[in-house]
Simulated scan of single mutants.
Amino acid sequence: MNRVRFLAAVVPSLLVAALAGAVAAAPAAADPLPKPPQPVPHCFGSDGTDLNELYDVTLRIVGPPACREIYAKEKWVRTAPGWTTAAGAGVAVYPEGYVPSRPDPIDDFDSKFVSATFVLDIGTPQEKRRTFKKKEILRTGFFDADGHPFSAVVSPPFKAPDLGPHTQTVFFTLKAEHCDGLGTVTEDNCLPGGTFDYTGDVPVTVIPRPDR
């Protein structure tokens, strides 16, 4: 076959094949990027302390009055008010007859703390209880603005209950009575041995997650 006629016949076919390959190789349109998660609002104590930073918690914290709403299907962490004691054995004062098991009051508390029980919707058919041992939940080594040491309970994550109002109650269990070394009134300065209600029934509301 004449070379010119051969090329004239072949080149168009090669061009069509090349264009077809280019179309096939063209990348598909990229899927839209997922929306980044909304930042969790931090929880602040009554003295302005950022509890998320203090306890190194990235999830929503429930506890103080300003921190009692949860989004539907959201994971959250429960904190209880910290237990504060006198700075040390040298300045501690106690009710008459009380003898601590450890010289420093904060060590006395930590040594007697056994567990905490978290109760959702106490006294209702929907009641749920979970108990965690000291090593799972007790945080210590903190100091308040006056230099008093304190320990605090921070729960593992919980799943949000159903939409609507709920209550959440924290019980402590101690091996024996503990007094904080800050005063001599048993009712104000001491915790009993055994299991007792530490927080009362805290109201918690689960609300729909807002659209973004």
Rank of each mutant, 00 (worst) to 15 (best):
V10H: 03
K159G: 09
L51V: 10
T85A: 14
D108A: 09
F109V: 03
K135Y: 10
Y98N: 06
T131L: 10
G48R: 09
A25R: 05
S151R: 05
D162S: 15
V119H: 09
D121S: 08
S155L: 10
C190R: 12
K75P: 06
E177S: 08
R78C: 14
K135W: 05
G193M: 13
G141S: 12
C67Q: 00
K75M: 09
G141P: 12
D188A: 13
F150P: 04
S13P: 03
P95I: 02
F113Q: 09
T49N: 02
N52M: 02
T85H: 02
A89N: 04
P157W: 13
P149N: 00
L7G: 14
E187H: 05
S111A: 15
P34F: 06
K175L: 10
R130C: 00
F171H: 15
R209F: 08
F44Y: 15
L54Y: 06
T205Q: 13
D162G: 14
P12G: 12
N189F: 02
F150D: 11
G183W: 07
D144G: 11
P125Q: 08
I122G: 14
D31T: 14
D108K: 08
S155A: 14
T169S: 13
I61Q: 00
L182R: 14
E69R: 13
T186N: 02
V204A: 09
S101Q: 15
H178F: 15
T184C: 01
A145S: 13
R68L: 07
T186A: 15
W76I: 12
P36T: 09
D110G: 00
D146V: 01
A8C: 05
E69N: 03
G48K: 10
R129I: 03
D108M: 09
S111Y: 12
G48Y: 03
D144E: 06
P125Y: 10
K75S: 13
L163R: 11
G183H: 03
D197G: 07
S101C: 05
F109S: 00
F142Q: 04
G123K: 07
F113S: 04
P210L: 07
P165D: 08
F118W: 08
V91S: 07
E177H: 03
V170S: 05
C43T: 05
R139V: 05
V91H: 00
D144A: 04
P32Q: 10
D110L: 12
A176V: 01
L7F: 13
G97L: 09
A160I: 06
F143W: 10
C179L: 04
V202I: 14
D104C: 12
T84K: 09
R60S: 08
A176I: 03
V11D: 03
A160E: 02
D110M: 08
P161R: 05
V99I: 15
Y98T: 13
N52Y: 04
I122P: 08
A160D: 04
